[in-house]
């Protein structure tokens, strides 16, 4: 099977923990005088970005470069893609260039699944439409574990546009796997109708869940949701679902405040909350590089067809091998 990271839902507990543990090692390496490793020398990582997302692209680029991979940035703007080249043709081009991994950001849900069917290298989902953003969820979990020491039993409240949020989706599935308890808070218009089937509780009353939250994760609100009548006004949204100083005071002392960025200060999060010691927003950015290094390392080490049959491995489990990281659902069609 292919070796991809497309959905956080595909990660087993062992996979997820292996990624977080590996990221922990990479985080310590970052403090060394020479933070660069030769690990992926000669491997090519393509950043295929159909949406502008400088921060995510830079994070993946830094991760790949610290592992000595060659990085090719393939932006949809100004390229053949803008001239109407199909994703499939682009995939075949990348294949011909010998891409070992393609990091894809795309406005359409499922684009990474399609890409995985057209390239031999690993596909890493850097955010697809309103589907998933698995490395964001991994770096969020990593940040929670670093700050609070554990994930199992952690009470995580995710607030905002759950319906359209790939960050929320990936977090719900990953946190379920890692044993955390998730509560979703949103206006009912911004929750999927089938949310009752998700491994998460739902509340419409933000303030009431705060005293029982170890983590509050605020999602970015898109202004265009207002014109689609998801809520009456930004002011009303902010009043009911924004995190300000008064609400933050309801949190237990140890609780942290997260945001995947970019923030709308004054809308979903007040400036003093974003800048408070509880806020992990800057750490999340730093941790993103370590987590993406871990993902690239685990996906790209080893080869599809081992040159020789596996002999006894060193004691312990080999993490996240091919089968574990594969997107089983991707090819499950008839």
């Amino acid at each position: 099977m292919n070796r991809h990271l497309i959905s956080a839902a595909d990660l087993s507990l062992d996979d997820a923990v292996a990624i977080l543990d590996t990221a922990e090692e990479f985080a310590t390496l970052a403090e060394r005088p020479i933070p660069k490793l030769p690990t992926l020398r000669g491997r090519t990582v393509v950043n295929l970005f159909y949406e502008d997302s400088t921060r995510t692209r830079i994070s993946f680029e830094a991760a790949a470069k610290r592992l000595s991979a060659d990085v090719i940035n393939f932006s949809a703007k100004g390229s053949s893609v803008a001239k109407g080249e199909s994703l499939k043709d682009t995939a075949l081009t990348l294949q011909a260039m010998g891409a070992d991994a393609v990091v894809i950001r795309h406005g359409s849900s499922g684009a990474p699944h399609r890409l995985a069917g057209w390239v031999r290298g690993s596909v890493v989902n850097a955010g697809d439409g309103t589907h998933e953003h698995p490395t964001q969820a991994l770096l969020d979990a990593f940040t929670m574990r670093r700050r609070l020491g554990r994930l199992d039993g952690l009470r995580v409240t995710i607030v905002g546009d759950i319906l359209h949020s790939r960050v929320a989706r990936s977090n719900v599935w990953l946190l379920r796997t890692l044993g955390a308890q998730v509560t979703l808070v949103a206006p009912p218009t911004l929750l999927p109708v089938a949310v009752d089937g998700w491994p998460a509780a739902v509340s419409y009353d933000f303030s009431s869940v705060l005293p029982d939250s170890d983590v509050v994760m605020m999602l970015r609100v898109q202004h265009e949701r207002m014109s689609d009548a998801y809520f009456p006004s930004v002011r009303e949204y902010s009043r009911r679902y924004g995190l300000d100083g008064d609400r933050m005071a309801l949190l237990p002392d140890h609780a942290i405040v997260m945001h995947p960025g970019p923030m709308n200060r004054g809308v979903e999060i007040a400036a003093d909350v974003a800048d408070s010691p509880r806020s992990t927003i800057v750490e999340q950015v730093t941790n993103g590089v370590s987590v993406r290094m871990a993902v690239l390392y685990l996906l790209l080490s080893g080869s599809r067809e081992p040159a020789e049959p596996a002999v006894a491995t060193t004691g312990g489990l080999a993490p996240a091998g091919e089968r574990a990281m594969s997107a089983a659902a991707a090819e499950a069609g008839l």
């Binding site: 839902a9 849900s109 499922g110 697809d128 439409g129 309103t130 589907h131 998933e132 790939r166 989706r169 999927p192 109708v193 089938a194 949310v195 089937g197 998700w198």
Partner: peptide, 10 residues
């Protein structure tokens, strides 16, 4: 619209 659309983000 249902379980699958919610999950797949479609």
């Amino acid at each position: 619209e249902g379980v699958m659309s919610a999950r797949l983000g479609l």
